[in-house]
């Protein structure tokens, strides 16, 4: 608690400097942002421990569960994990379905290596399921199979794209493991 005055003192200096330099675009926004976090980088998620969170992995997996612990690499331990797959309404033949579909399955305790995390965020447990209202739930196996097919198709398309771009002297920045 005694840190607060010190922090303010630190924060006031750059504010004054900013005022002098006359930067009128988004004044002091970065100060506001930083003040709401006790820590930056990996330690910022300390507030989400024992809360329901959402994690997106590099392979496109969506995981929902309770964050139990983490470390400086953002290795995460998540309990009561549910994996959910959302299928957007685009079909393989380019037609669109009326409803979006999803499937989910219980997975238990996860320990995720930090490298593979794209993003994570805290969930509001009151409203987290609201967005599923208009969606149709299918068995997980069905949705998983469909997703795998879509991924395979994407890889194929990107390979073709890479080939075409390369023939023109361009590089296509696509990695097979990046499906998020």
């Amino acid at each position: 608690m005694s840190e607060v005055p010190a922090q303010q003192a630190v924060n006031q200096q750059p504010q004054q400097q900013q005022g002098q330099s006359g930067n009128r675009l988004a004044p002091k926004v970065e100060d506001l942002y930083l003040e709401s976090y006790a820590f930056t980088t990996a330690a910022a998620i300390v507030g989400s421990v024992d809360r329901k969170i959402f994690v997106l992995l590099r392979d496109g997996r969506n995981l929902f569960g309770v964050l139990r612990t983490f470390d400086q690499f953002a290795n995460l331990v998540i309990q009561d994990t549910v994996e959910r797959i959302y299928l957007d309404d685009e079909n393989s033949d380019g037609t669109k379905d009326k409803v979006r579909r999803y499937g989910e399955v219980y997975r238990g305790v996860f320990m995720i290596r930090g490298e593979n995390v794209v993003m994570m965020g805290e969930l509001d447990i009151d409203t987290e399921d609201d967005h599923l209202q208009g969606l149709e739930q299918l068995p997980f196996e069905v949705v998983e199979k469909e997703l795998k097919e879509r991924h395979a198709r994407k890889v194929k398309e990107e390979k073709l794209r890479s080939k075409k771009l390369l023939s023109q002297g361009f590089v296509n920045d696509f990695v097979k493991s990046d499906m998020y």
Binding site: L57, V77, G108, V109, F110, M111, R113
Partner: peptide
């Protein structure tokens, strides 16, 4: 080798122990 790991799934009882 650790750097090849994406994730691990652990037994539920482990959390009780922790």
């Amino acid at each position: 080798r650790g750097n090849h790991i994406k994730y691990m799934r652990l037994p539920e009882e482990l959390m009780d122990y922790a």
